[in-house]
Design a binder for these strands. Structure first.
Lengths: 226, 226
DNA sequence: GCAAAAGTGTTTTGAGTACACCCATGC
DNA sequence: GCATGGGTGTACTCAAAACACTTTTGC
């Protein structure tokens, strides 16, 4: 039996929180197929390259985020036969979570609010679905991991962390209960001893990310959102 | 730029509970590479075939589980360059959960306790790791979904469902609290009105799976196991 | 009757929710 | 002083944990 060989790509769902919106890195296509539509940054993997290595390389080359520390994890793989009209392509999607960064210098790559991408603009291939899967993964992971801190700068306040949750989930959270919960969670936040008044009012303590991956007990979304 | 083309396989982690052990479908290799080692059932995808379709086809052809209703979901994709010594292969792993079924008629395919596979026997490729990822996914999913019922026959008792949890997690659960929790969860269990005494003692009510996918609130594993 | 397993009731504990209240800064 | 947001205390609610107890079968 001959072994079919096909093209394998890595596509990137890179999310951040900026200007009070959950936003994703979008690639504006300037050639067929889907000229004028948006797509996710991505590209073909090399023959001697591991999948996470390909994701990192594309994050630097295509997404313009070279040397940026971000959380990167595999999302899912998409491979139905006609998803690319030119040839059979199997795409391994990766999910990246980044703090609010300057957009890439490439005009083709820009941050765009997820809501606008999903509801308004035309998407290339099945990238609308992949983006949706990435957003849902991020929303779910905020519940039971400490990943929300990946959206924050190296030093951040409890209120900044809370705004990440509120924007990603689209729900308001009680500041006082949130404060108690995250400062009480083991290994989530490490106090730096410094404070800041950048948000106004009483100085807020600054924290860095702790080593804990999981959050026990989880931070549950308010019921109506589910 | 030329597009590298490579082979794509689907590998299957098929789990069940039988003889008080969490067990997986194992393929005993009889040719190089890794002759004599165990591997996961799997095979190359066809050019005109979607990934879930390939998983179903291989579940029937290679795993010998044709026409069996089971839960099937994508697990993860593995693709580091030298994972197969013969050629570059990217493998999309699928996780299947099945009730206790007769083993395949093929001598090459048999149910084997997961502990034995992971700790004792020699594994081909990176299949030990893939199996481990599948087991961990199954363990985690029992917490917040109703998937435990996928390990049960069409009609089952609360005690049988509890034994699934206890075997998969390797922890004892309080029968009384478990009973209350699972019969109270909305859409998890549908009473048939029938009873059975196949486990001895007072007759137990029989249930079928309800439509609910998610379990709110979740069934948490006892803390020490984590 | 007795063993075995199913199923219910009750008490205790811990976590989530709501909200009153105090604290420390900028202006 | 006063507005603004940071942070603490406390009462209420609800679900999980622990376990005593009753029910219904087989033998």
């Amino acid at each position: 039996m001959s072994v079919p060989r096909l093209a394998v790509t890595v596509d990137l769902v890179v999310l951040t929180v900026r200007e009070q919106r959950l936003s994703a890195l979008m690639w504006r296509r300037d050639r067929a197929p889907y000229a004028g539509a948006w797509s996710l940054p991505g590209g073909f993997i090399q023959l001697d390259e591991d999948l996470p290595a390909a994701a990192s390389r594309l994050m630097a080359d295509r997404a313009g985020l070279a040397g940026v520390p971000l959380h990167l994890e595999q999302l899912a793989t998409y491979g139905y036969p006609d998803r690319d009209p030119r040839q059979r392509v199997v795409s391994v999607a990766y999910l990246g979570l980044a703090p609010d960064l300057p957009a890439s210098s490439r005009a083709q790559v820009l941050w765009t609010a997820v809501d606008d991408l999903v509801h308004r603009d035309t998407a290339a291939f099945d990238h609308r679905r992949i983006l949706g899967d990435g957003v849902e993964r991020a929303r779910a992971k905020l519940e039971y991991t400490s990943l929300a801190a990946a959206f924050c700068p190296p030093e951040f306040t409890v209120a900044e962390l809370r705004r990440v949750y509120e924007i990603v989930w689209g729900t308001a959270l009680d500041p006082r209960n949130f404060h108690r919960k995250v400062t009480g969670a083991d290994g989530f936040l490490v106090p730096t001893g410094r404070t800041t008044t950048r948000d106004g009012g009483r100085p807020a303590r600054l924290y860095t990310r702790g080593g804990a991956e999981h959050l026990r007990p989880p931070m549950l979304r308010p019921a109506p959102a589910r």
